[in-house]
Amino acid sequence: MEQLAAAGYAVADDILPIGLAASLRTELLALEAAGALSVAGIGRETAYRRDGDVRRAAIRWLDGGTAAERELLSLAETLRRVINARLFLGLFDFECNYIAYPIGGFYGRHLDRLQGERNRVVSFIAYLDPDWTEVDGGALRLWRDPDDAGEPVLTVLPRAGRVVLMLSEEIPHEVLPANRPRHAIAGWWRINRA
């Protein structure tokens, strides 16, 4: 939490227990094999589009329908309480999806902000693939702020159990092309719009 407060992002290993990462990965692989994932898009409502030049991945929203999903959502609730206690952000709601990048899959530099309203405040990424190395590609790169055109301040390998948190509207990031299939959970805490 101190790193998130100071830098706007934080990376921690073993926040997601390895057994839970393995269970979620197994579920995601089964969904993928069954053709139950949707091509990931960008934007929302009338601005929503699928653009393979910006993002190449497939997703499925989690609904808490399995024991592993419920355990992940319970972990997210614990993190929400800790973030609120430390950063006073008033986080209220959490949504997340499975995300699968094929070989060559990527996501160009972006913010996790949807146009029109402040709806995503803190982003959450949990990695599911074991034994990931630099040769496998698919690293996450972060910049300090949207106007930063220089080199990224951090490059994160997507190793199982690793969690990344970042301020959704402030930290630009990208996923480099993966050299092997890459699996993760991406989520966002939102504030109460009422």
Results as ranks from 00 to 15, higher is better:
2 E>Y: 10
3 Q>V: 14
3 Q>C: 13
4 L>A: 08
4 L>N: 07
5 A>D: 12
5 A>V: 01
6 A>Y: 03
7 A>F: 03
8 G>P: 04
9 Y>A: 06
9 Y>F: 15
12 A>V: 07
16 L>C: 11
16 L>W: 09
18 I>S: 11
19 G>S: 11
19 G>A: 13
20 L>C: 06
21 A>W: 02
22 A>P: 06
24 L>N: 11
27 E>A: 12
27 E>R: 12
28 L>D: 03
30 A>G: 13
31 L>R: 05
31 L>H: 10
31 L>T: 00
31 L>K: 01
32 E>V: 02
33 A>T: 06
34 A>Y: 00
35 G>A: 05
35 G>M: 04
36 A>I: 00
37 L>A: 04
37 L>W: 05
41 G>Q: 14
41 G>M: 14
42 I>F: 12
45 E>D: 15
50 R>M: 13
51 D>W: 09
52 G>V: 10
52 G>M: 13
52 G>H: 15
54 V>H: 10
54 V>E: 00
54 V>Q: 12
57 A>R: 09
58 A>S: 14
58 A>R: 13
59 I>A: 05
62 L>Y: 05
62 L>E: 03
65 G>H: 15
66 T>I: 14
72 L>N: 00
75 L>Y: 02
76 A>S: 07
77 E>L: 06
78 T>K: 12
78 T>G: 09
79 L>S: 00
80 R>H: 00
82 V>R: 15
83 I>Q: 03
83 I>L: 06
84 N>E: 05
87 L>C: 02
89 L>F: 13
90 G>M: 04
90 G>H: 07
92 F>H: 14
92 F>S: 10
97 N>W: 06
99 I>A: 15
100 A>Y: 04
103 I>D: 04
103 I>R: 14
105 G>A: 06
106 F>L: 07
106 F>S: 07
107 Y>G: 05
108 G>C: 12
112 D>G: 11
112 D>T: 09
114 L>D: 09
115 Q>R: 15
116 G>Y: 02
117 E>H: 14
119 N>Y: 08
120 R>V: 08
121 V>I: 15
122 V>S: 07
123 S>G: 12
123 S>T: 15
124 F>R: 05
125 I>W: 00
128 L>N: 10
128 L>V: 10
129 D>A: 08
129 D>T: 11
130 P>F: 07
131 D>F: 04
132 W>N: 12
132 W>A: 12
133 T>V: 14
135 V>C: 08
140 L>E: 02
140 L>A: 06
142 L>R: 03
145 D>F: 08
147 D>A: 13
147 D>Y: 06
148 D>W: 00
149 A>R: 09
150 G>Q: 02
151 E>M: 08
151 E>A: 14
151 E>F: 01
153 V>W: 03
153 V>K: 10
158 P>Y: 09
161 G>R: 05
162 R>Y: 08
164 V>I: 13
164 V>F: 06
164 V>P: 09
166 M>S: 06
167 L>P: 00
167 L>S: 09
169 E>C: 01
169 E>H: 02
169 E>S: 03
169 E>L: 00
170 E>V: 04
171 I>G: 04
171 I>N: 08
173 H>G: 09
177 P>L: 03
177 P>N: 02
180 R>A: 12
181 P>K: 14
184 A>L: 07
186 A>N: 13
186 A>R: 15
187 G>H: 06
188 W>H: 05
189 W>G: 01
190 R>E: 02
190 R>I: 01
191 I>N: 09
191 I>P: 01
192 N>P: 01
193 R>T: 03
